[in-house]
């Protein structure tokens, strides 16, 4: 129980610090949320970005997913054959 109280206190401290930082910072934003009528859900813009600017991270991500897949299978398979 005392542990939970300490954890809660620490979490609240963290929240206080972060909230303070957020409130006291002046954020530079656009005046109006951008609305592209031709591309309401941003799919086109995102797709273009993924396959031009971020194509290498995208490919790397595919490798990461493959690695995760293989790793998961390896870790979770039963060790009967050993």
């Amino acid at each position: 129980m005392i542990n939970k109280a300490i954890n809660g206190a620490v979490a609240l401290l963290f929240l206080a610090v972060v909230a303070l930082a957020i409130v006291t910072t002046t954020w530079i934003t656009v005046d109006e949320l951008p609305q592209n009528l031709a591309d309401q859900s941003n799919i086109e813009a995102i797709g273009v970005q993924i396959f031009t600017q971020f194509v290498i991270p995208f490919e790397v991500l595919s490798l990461v997913l493959l690695g995760a897949l293989i790793g998961a299978v390896y870790i979770a398979k039963s060790e009967v054959e050993k």
Partner: peptide
């Protein structure tokens, strides 16, 4: 959204995919 810059959303996509990988590994 508030800076009208699409890269943030692209990163979110990556982040979601990585979260999926992380959940799979953690579960395994």
């Amino acid at each position: 959204s508030y800076n009208d810059d699409m890269s943030g959303q692209v990163f979110t996509l990556f982040s979601i995919a990585l979260a999926a990988a992380e959940a799979i590994i953690g579960f395994a």
